[in-house]
C-alpha cells in the first residue's frame, strides 16, 4: 500500500514537472516557464538568429538594435543594446522570456521587474550547440537536433570543398584593425580548423588576442581574411606591404553582411564555413 502511494506520488511529481519548462542558463540560473515561450525579446543577434532558425521567428516581439537577420526582424521594436537596453520598452513588450548575453547590464533590473531572463552566451561550437538546445526547450520546439545536424552537414560539405593545396595553410583572420585576430580557440578559429586550415595565432593567446602588427608581418600568413575595407587598407599599414599574401592576392575580403555571418557565433556557423570555403576555392583557382 505504501509502495503504491509512493509510486503515485512520483507519478504526480513527474507530471507536474513535465507540464512546465525548466532550463539552466549560462549563469547556472534555472529559468522556469509554465508553457513554451510565446512572446520573446532577444538582446543578442546570434540569439535572434537562433530563435528564427528554430522556426519561431513570429514569436519575437522585440530585439536588440544590432539584430538584422533574417530581414523580418528589422521591423520589430528595437530595445537598445547589451549595455543600454531600454528597460521600459522591454517590460512594455510583455515578453514571456528575455534571451540575453550573460554580460548584459539590464539582466538584474529586468529580473527585479519580474521578467524571466535566460542568459546565454555562445562562444564556441560546443556552446552554440548547448545554446540551441536551451532556446529550443524554452520555445517548446524539437528542431534542435535537426538544426545542429544541418550546421554540421554544411561544415562537412564546406570542408570537402577546400582545395587540397590550401589544407594546413596558416590563416590570419582579423576582427579589428587594432589589430585583433581570431585565435584557434574562438568559434571562427574552430570553423577554420574544421576546414583543415591552420592559424597564425598560437592557442595560448586566447580567442581574440590583440596582436602587435609586427607579429603578423613576421608570421607571414598564407591567407588574410577580414572585411573588404580592412583588406584594402592593409597594404597601407607600415611594413605590411611586405606580406606575401597581400602581394600575391591571397586574401578573402568579405562585405559586411557576409562578414557578420562569419563573426557571429550563431546558427549560421555552417553558412560561415561555406563562405570561407567559397573564397578558398576561388583562391586556389586563381593561383
Amino acid at each position: 500500500m505504501r509502495r503504491c502511494g509512493l509510486a503515485l506520488w512520483l507519478c504526480i511529481a513527474s507530471a507536474a514537472q513535465a507540464a512546465g519548462i525548466s532550463v539552466q542558463d549560462d549563469r547556472g540560473v534555472t529559468v522556469q516557464l509554465d508553457r513554451p515561450a510565446q512572446r520573446i525579446v532577444t538582446l543578442l543577434p546570434s540569439l535572434t538568429e537562433t530563435v528564427c532558425e528554430l522556426k519561431a521567428c513570429e514569436r519575437l516581439v522585440g530585439t536588440d538594435r544590432y539584430s538584422n537577420w533574417p530581414a523580418s526582424v528589422q521591423a520589430l521594436p528595437k530595445t537598445g543594446g547589451m549595455e543600454d537596453a531600454n528597460v521600459e520598452r522591454i517590460v512594455a513588450l510583455k515578453p514571456d522570456v528575455v534571451l540575453a548575453a550573460v554580460s548584459t547590464r539590464a539582466i538584474g533590473r529586468l529580473e527585479a521587474l519580474g521578467l524571466k531572463v535566460a542568459a546565454l552566451e555562445p562562444k564556441s561550437h560546443a556552446d552554440m550547440r548547448r545554446v540551441i538546445g536551451a532556446v529550443a526547450r524554452l520555445l517548446g520546439k524539437d528542431g534542435e537536433e535537426l538544426l545542429w545536424r544541418r550546421i554540421e552537414q554544411q561544415t562537412r560539405e564546406a570542408a570537402a570543398k577546400v582545395p587540397a593545396s590550401l589544407r594546413g595553410q596558416h590563416v590570419y583572420l582579423e576582427v579589428d584593425a587594432s589589430p585583433y585576430a581570431a585565435g584557434p580557440s574562438s568559434f571562427v578559429g574552430e570553423t577554420l580548423a574544421a576546414l583543415g586550415l591552420g592559424n597564425v595565432v598560437p592557442k595560448e593567446l586566447g580567442p581574440f588576442p590583440k596582436l602587435n602588427p609586427e607579429f603578423v608581418v613576421r608570421a607571414q600568413p598564407d591567407i588574410l581574411i577580414g572585411t573588404d575595407t580592412a583588406i584594402q587598407e592593409m597594404a597601407a599599414r607600415p611594413g605590411w606591404q611586405g606580406l606575401k599574401a597581400l602581394k600575391t592576392g591571397r586574401t578573402c575580403g568579405f562585405a559586411m553582411p557576409q562578414y557578420e555571418v562569419l563573426i557571429r557565433p550563431g546558427p549560421r556557423l555552417g553558412e560561415a564555413a561555406q563562405l570561407l570555403a567559397g573564397c578558398f576555392t576561388k583562391l586556389a583557382q586563381a593561383h
Binding site: 543600454d84 537596453a85 528597460v87 539590464a106 527585479a112
Partner: peptide
C-alpha cells in the same frame, strides 16, 4: 546612465 535605477 540612469536607465537601470530601481527602488533598491
Amino acid at each position: 546612465t540612469t536607465g537601470f535605477l530601481g527602488w533598491t
